[in-house]
């Protein structure tokens, strides 16, 4: 087969094949191109920061972060009880026992790190909340003499269980005692249904801490 001598005419407009192409230096990379690229790189990092979900594989919705996902997850029943207890405390208890649970010296005894609260069993505490307390009482070795109102008509069994759980388990206050259930409150309420006066410290001390 002889070498092809005639270059096909599709090769070039003039009928002869032009030489292989070369590169020149006719234009420079324009500055606006570099500037735009820089701006876009900046935009890209911002976009990733905003919509990348912090590179967490459990974030799927655009523009969310892990905290948003966690916020949608319902808390456990115990968490809900504590949250409910905090609300009850804020309304009914905070005024005397104070937001930090330390009470007011010489007037209202503390709940935080209290030797009445941090005991094994809530029998006495439930009675105090239900029917109130009057007369002298020694808390952490300090004498108090004041009156606490009864809450049996305002608070349901659930509410009392919640607030006592909140108080007894409040780690910020230094309390580490176990939860109280609505069933325990109900039992005490029924057992003391006939009572219409405040408890005294002496009466309470005669009652066992738990059944």
């Amino acid at each position: 087969m002889k070498p092809v001598s005639s270059i096909p005419k599709v090769a070039g407009a003039a009928g002869v094949e032009p030489p292989e192409p070369k590169t020149g230096n006719a234009i420079q990379t324009p500055m606006w191109f570099i500037a735009l690229l820089g701006i876009s790189l900046y935009w890209g990092t911002m976009y990733l920061d905003r919509n990348g979900g912090g590179y967490n594989p459990l974030v799927f919705n655009r523009g969310e972060r892990m905290a948003d996902v966690e916020a949608r997850v319902p808390k456990s029943d115990a968490d809900l009880l504590v949250a409910q207890g905090r609300k009850v405390y804020d309304i009914y208890c905070k005024a005397c026992h104070q937001p930090n649970g330390r009470g007011v010296p010489n007037q209202f005894p503390p709940l935080a790190e209290s030797d009445w609260v941090n005991v094994d069993g809530a029998n006495r505490l439930i009675r105090i909340v239900l029917h109130g307390l009057g007369g002298p009482i020694s808390v952490n070795g300090v004498e108090y003499n004041n009156v606490m109102l009864p809450w049996r008509d305002q608070l349901s069994d659930d509410d009392i269980a919640a607030v006592l759980t909140f108080v007894r388990g409040n780690k910020e206050w230094g309390n580490h005692s176990g939860p109280v259930t609505a069933a325990e409150v109900k039992k005490v309420r029924e057992a003391t249904a006939s009572r219409d006066s405040n408890w005294t410290a002496a009466e309470l001390l005669a009652i066992p801490l738990k059944d």
Partner: peptide, 20 residues
């Protein structure tokens, strides 16, 4: 879709930057 948000976000940024 079911890919984590950061994967699709990377795809978006890369595709936009590919314009350059």
């Amino acid at each position: 879709g079911p890919l984590p948000a950061y994967l699709t976000a990377q795809g978006v940024v890369a595709t936009v930057l590919t314009v350059f």
